[in-house]
Write a protein that binds this DNA or RNA. Sequence first.
DNA 1: TATTTTTTTAACCAAATGGTTAAAAAAATA
DNA 2: TATTTTTTTAACCATTTGGTTAAAAAAATA
Lengths: 202, 202
Amino acid sequence: MEKKSVETQENILIAARTIFAQKGLAGARMQEIADRAGINKALLHYYYRNKEKLFEQVFDEALKKMLRPLAAFLADDSELFQKIRNICKHYHEVLIEYPFIPNFVINEVNTDPARILKLMDIEGVLEGKKKTAFQINEAVKSGIIRPIDPRELILNIISLSVFPFVSRPLSEKFLYENEDMGEVLKSRSDRVADFVIQSIKI
Amino acid sequence: MEKKSVETQENILIAARTIFAQKGLAGARMQEIADRAGINKALLHYYYRNKEKLFEQVFDEALKKMLRPLAAFLADDSELFQKIRNICKHYHEVLIEYPFIPNFVINEVNTDPARILKLMDIEGVLEGKKKTAFQINEAVKSGIIRPIDPRELILNIISLSVFPFVSRPLSEKFLYENEDMGEVLKSRSDRVADFVIQSIKI
DNA sequence: TATTTTTTTAACCAAATGGTTAAAAAAATA
DNA sequence: TATTTTTTTAACCATTTGGTTAAAAAAATA
């Protein structure tokens, strides 16, 4: 008797991810999460004390999946263009698997920005960012790329990688009409990297 | 006796914009909106029947400020690079004045995507999009720009223009540490346009 | 089969919140 | 000043919702 228990807890987490992403912490209803997980409210509370704790677990788990490898990519010693490709690929891979992460972050960042910052610090993202910023400045100095503020370049890469997922419900209909945007996003990573590199290379 | 009345209603709308953007429709509290507007809850309900109606008004007003000129820029006959500059500038100008719009749209799009689509249709954005997509295809054919899917190019422009505002609370601290990101965003429009043009031009 | 764990049922509570109301007070207007 | 509109006060209601509880039932395990 443990197998069923684990399965139920996993069902709860899966349901919670969807509901929290769609409705945010305030908009999510425990009853709705329970329904989606195929259980009742009493059992939901049996496994997770309260909504905040459940949200925290879902949120922290998701964010770490994003941040941990990102820190690694930022900190490693690849050449700049390769690093850009790595980071684009990382964003796309994680967001295809966990498309709810950006909505989480955006909603939470208005509530408690310090918390995410702290996680970024713990996971080494801040450290990695400094290293990459330095690398970009060096590339500018040595004439490999056009002059650009490292922060701006990083922001552009993240914007191009993340925003399509954030805006997907709208973009899918506005831009891609009936087409399946999932396929577009799956193959987008390389095109984003090329777009960025094309823009900065000399 | 009308002057004070108008002023109060405007105070309510200003307060509502901030609160709705920060907390979304579900997370916003009428009491909090009343407090921020410097009035009490009874008066708030005296002017706006209920939360949904208030939200609708704030939301539709804001969205039209975004969509109406966008449709015009998309539909006009400027040469492609100039059009890209116009659109970047438009996004940045509106978002500097109404930075809450993207959060509105993102939250609402999960609730009722059809509604925004309808507004886009009414305001002529869909029509303008088609025209611009055609123009991009022509520019590719005549060798003015590298091959790119028009939808992808449009998505990239929007991503680069909008995402920094969406992610501002985080980016401000993660990337720009203590610096004022407001200044960065104010001057970003031209840099985004250059970034895009540099990437596609031959 | 006996035991333990998981799940359901169902009723219940407290707090938060959207919304109402009526009367008084304050402010603007004529 | 008389009248009308705006605003406050303050009490109140209904609903939603997060959360609890206790007992029974079902399922897994030993």
